[in-house]
């Protein structure tokens, strides 16, 4: 009858990670579809809204707003996708490997975010605007 009571402590880090994951879920739901459509479907296939345009029209244009938009959308989606994929692995009976997979997942997220920030920064500062005026 003498119970050893378990010590409980709020796990703030996990709460934060889950919070980012959750916000990432909204980002992936609301913002990602339109980004995929414009940059990787409409642009290469010449569909609306980039059809009949004399200019290259992709979402990324050199403005602070579009830079932030791409960072949030791709960063959030990447975090959400990897985090969710990683958490579903234990279901598949991969519990034992999951801490390794977790580590790999977080590394991918970290490297991805750094690369994303790096390229966006590079583009924002050193981009040749004439590219956007190339006639299709």
């Amino acid at each position: 009858m003498d119970k050893v009571k378990k010590e409980y402590k709020s796990d703030k880090l996990h709460a934060l990670l889950w919070g980012v994951f959750s916000v990432g879920g909204f980002i992936a739901a609301f913002l990602l579809p339109v980004l995929i459509y414009i940059d990787n479907i409409a642009y290469p296939l010449g569909l609306w809204p980039v059809a009949n345009s004399s200019l290259i029209k992709i979402v990324f244009m050199v403005s602070l707003l579009s830079t932030i938009f791409v960072f949030i959308t791709i960063g959030g989606s990447l975090f959400h996708g990897i985090f969710r994929f990683k958490t579903t692995l234990p279901e598949l009976g991969l519990k034992r490997a999951s801490s390794l997979i977790s580590a790999v997942g977080y590394i991918i997220i970290a490297v991805g975010l750094i690369a994303l920030a790096y390229y966006l920064f590079q583009l924002y500062h050193g981009f040749d605007p004439s590219l956007f005026h190339r006639i299709i």
Binding site: L32, I74, S77, L78, H80, G81, R84, F85, I108
Partner: peptide
Amino acid sequence: SFFISIYA
């Protein structure tokens, strides 16, 4: 989630 992360 797999496709979303690969796309990103």
